[in-house]
Amino acid sequence: MTILQRILHVEDDPSIQEVARVALEIVGGFEVQSCDDGYSALERASEWQPDLILLDVMMPGIDGPTTLARLREQAETRDIPVVFMTAKVQTGEIEHYRAIGALDVVVKPFDPMTLAAQLRTIWERAHAG
């Protein structure tokens, strides 16, 4: 199985972007790039070819689910797994994201000390099956 190494984090909130970078780069030891919105994520994902995209659900411009749909339309990004990050508001939201093709969902607020481990678990579980 491929080792999880490169993570593209798509998030419009700069504070969350920074804390996630600490959580993933320093605590988790991953290689991380960040994008502020869905459009730049589409470009960066095809250039950089991350192992996984951590995608915020609610963003200005195109939201997370729309970005996921666009990623699936581009040949270069079609197979990159996506994990949503959401400040869950509605019941059934998480099930819905899984249904539209997200590998899994990370709930906000997240704990910076365990975010990396959470992603690693999701990754391993997905590859074990």
Binding site: D13, S15, I16, V89, K108, P109
Partner: peptide, 11 residues
């Protein structure tokens, strides 16, 4: 409200 509802806990 949403932006801080999601982030405050992380900090």
């Amino acid at each position: 409200l949403h932006r801080n509802a999601g982030s405050a806990g992380t900090f």
